[in-house]
Amino acid sequence: MKVKRKRKDDGKELHMIENPSVGDRVADVIILIICIGVALCSVLPLWHIFVSSISDGQELLKHEGLLLLPVGERLNWEGYKAVFKDASLLKGFANTLLYCVAGTALGFFISVTGGYALSRTTKMHTFMVLFCTVTLLFGGGMVPTYMVIRQLGMVGTRWSLIIPGCTNSMLAIMMMNAFNGVPKEYEESARLDGAGHFDVLFRIMLPQVKNMSMVLILNSVVGQWNSWFNASIYVPNNRNAWPLQLWIRQMTADNENFLLSANPDYNRYLIQYVLIVVAILPIIAMLPFFQERLEQGVIVGGIKG
């Protein structure tokens, strides 16, 4: 915090001694315009999708180009109604939520306990670090992994989307670094009071690494929410286990053939847009609250890895 305040002061002093020339002012305006342009490019496509989702389907099909306001005589919420009436899409939502919660919980548990074991002074320390580093460097690849998961009997079940991708060596090593950063005195005093590893980890150490834990959890939730590839190879035929993202892909594909159907239901065409809005909205809503945490995660990850 102190550092931050100092930086701000530096900035102020700097501005005081500066006498911006005309050229400087023009440069400022150009820079601002470019940056706002980037921000608009980031947001406008999503806005386009949102206004499409409340447009009139038939009018929308005729429209070309970027939409800033919904087309059609009045706002059309039929697409949203259709989505919330569709049992399989609702199931997709429930699945995505399940994968987010279960995958994150399991992955977090494994990373934390693994990271803790890696960070302790033990005889096996070198072996354990090596054991994790090898898999960081080299992997079997897509097909052998698929075969293993198939032989474990997970293909076609929800387990294949919860267990295999829930953690990796990188996360355990990040956790290890976080634990290594906690002053030794914490552990020593707890030890003197008779605490074992179990108490040390869950009652002493874990509360000290809240920041890193938060970063791990957030990244895992976002990753699970957005993941589609694993589902497309492990549960392609079990629609009951499809996450939301696979349904979006399906709807996009359906829409390409939409005009071929004889008697089209135009609200059906809107479902793709509605699904995208619903899939993005929670993440955009949480972004402002977690922005700083996530930024910290990037910076820490960049410096250490």
Binding site: I110, T113, A117, T145, V148, P164, C166, T167, G196, L201
Partner: peptide, 26 residues
């Protein structure tokens, strides 16, 4: 450190199943 090794067990199993077995599958 027995408990610490026990803590490593989930990671160990996970790595064997989803990282080392696929390497063998090469």
């Amino acid at each position: 450190n027995g408990t610490a090794y026990l803590f490593f067990a989930p990671m160990f199993i996970y790595q064997v199943l989803f990282a080392y077995l696929p390497m063998f599958g090469i």
